[in-house]
Each structure stands twice: as C-alpha cells, then as structure tokens.
C-alpha cells in the first residue's frame, strides 16, 4: 500500500510552557482532502506549524510520503514537497506580485508532477497576471489570498496545507477560492484544509479531524460522520 501523504504521529507541541498539542495524530491519504476543524485556539495552526517545520514538536513524528521529516528545517521540508498557504497570507510585501511567485518556483520533489509555472498560475488567477508588476502590498485581501495560493503552487508541492483561506474574504471570493481547492483536489494534490467555517470544509473534504483543546476529539470520514450523526455544534459551537 502506498504510504500516506502526511502523517502526524502522537505529536506533543509547546509554546513556551503552554502545552498546545497533546498526542495529536492525523493522517492525510494521498490525493485526499482532510478538513481540520476546531474552535479558536484548539491547535489547528499549531498543527500546520509543526508540519512545515516552524515549530519542532517535543515528541511525536511527522512523516511525508513515508519519510520522516520531524523537526527538519522548514526549507528542507519545503524541498521534499510541502507547501503552506498560511493564515494571514504572509505575502512578501516589499516584492512585486511576480517576484512573490518566482522566489517560490521550484521543480517538483521526486514523485511530484511538474505542472505549475508562472504562466499556469497566471492562467488560473488572471487578476495576478494583470497586476504582476504591482507591489504585493497594494493588492486587495482576495488578491493577496490568490497570491498566497499561487506562491504555494509555484513550488509544485505534493502536499498543500491551507490555513483559513476564506478568512476575511467576501462571499464571492470565498467561492472562487473553494472552486480552486476542488480543482487542485481533482488534479490529485493531497490537501490539508483548516477552516473556521465547517460548512465549507464538509462540502469538499473526504476526511475530518476535529481538535478540541489540543487533542483530537473526532477523526472520521465525512460520510462516516454524517452516518453516525456527530453533533458538530457540540464540538465547534461557541455557546
């Protein structure tokens, strides 16, 4: 059996003394879309930071297509085929739109397919092509989100992590972003999607993990979850 695209195995992570992830395990199958849900502060972004190498876990493992990358430097993990669309977008503000894309350009890691080039990203996001010579800081929120997605794709990743891509965007732009997520999934990319908006995730995900206070509360397929009638409100509701 082919190894899973991304596995976190019993990960313990801390910010200073605060124990933010407690034995968190998750499994993203190749070509699948795993939705990661949870309240604010449940540890979703921390999972992302551990996976990309920004936060080395105190215990546990991170495995990318069967290869251990636990606590490796972020640039090494990126070169093995992981890409992140971070919360808050984190585009490079003093670079032009085009430069934001070209600095991330890379041939795919072994096992990946080379399909994303500057032209391909511009074809998918025509707004970026129109504004390619503008400073990235002058883009609107929606355009910055597209730039962050385009930048992640320029590295031709095998695993794409997306952290709250709908945050702060107008409904129409959210629709465009989610259509892009669907298209990437159809192309066979393995995707880990973090969202506050559970409905968006349930529409596109194959599998769901719900985090609560740094622990996995629910891990199931979307179909299984709907069949067993898990009360999402119980896990995600604020009141």
């Amino acid at each position: 059996m082919a190894p899973d695209a991304l596995v976190l195995g019993e990960v313990d992570a801390y910010y200073g003394d605060s124990h933010v992830l407690q034995k968190v395990s998750l499994r993203l199958g190749e070509g699948r879309l795993l939705g990661l849900l949870g309240r604010n502060g449940a540890g979703k972004t921390t999972c992302m930071n551990v996976a990309v190498g920004l936060l080395p876990p105190r215990a546990g493992t991170v495995t990318l297509f069967g290869e251990a990358v636990t606590a490796r430097p972020p640039e090494t993990i990126a070169r093995r085929g992981m890409a992140l669309v971070p919360q808050g977008r984190h585009i490079f503000k003093s670079l032009s739109v085009r430069e934001n894309l070209t600095v991330a350009a890379r041939k795919p890691a072994v096992g990946g397919r080379h399909s994303w080039t500057l032209e391909a990203v511009f074809a998918s996001f025509p707004r970026l092509a129109e504004r390619q010579h503008h400073a990235a800081s002058h883009l609107s929120g929606g355009e910055q989100q597209m730039l962050a997605i385009g930048r992640a794709l320029m590295s031709n990743p095998r695993v794409l992590l997306m952290d709250e891509p709908s945050e702060g965007l107008a409904p129409q732009i959210v629709g465009e972003v989610m259509a892009m997520v669907r298209r990437l999934k159809q192309q066979g990319l393995s995707i880990l999607l973090v969202e506050q908006n559970a409905k968006l995730v349930l529409d596109v995900a194959d599998d769901i993990i719900i985090l609560n206070n740094g622990r996995v509360a629910v891990a199931d397929t979307v179909a299984g979850m709907e069949a067993s009638g898990v009360d999402l409100h119980h896990h995600l509701g604020v009141f």
Partner: peptide, 24 residues
C-alpha cells in the same frame, strides 16, 4: 534578480521565506 528578490523576501518575513523553501 531572483536572488535579490529572495534576499528581500528573507528580510520581509524570514520564517515564511524558509517555508517557501528559500535558504535564508
């Protein structure tokens, strides 16, 4: 140059530049 853009990216946001694969 692309090298110069990478340097500026590293100055802008070093952690993100590393996540993008730049050897800052």
């Amino acid at each position: 140059t692309r090298l110069g853009a990478m340097i500026r990216a590293g100055v802008d946001d070093a952690p993100m530049a590393r996540v993008v694969g730049i050897r800052v």
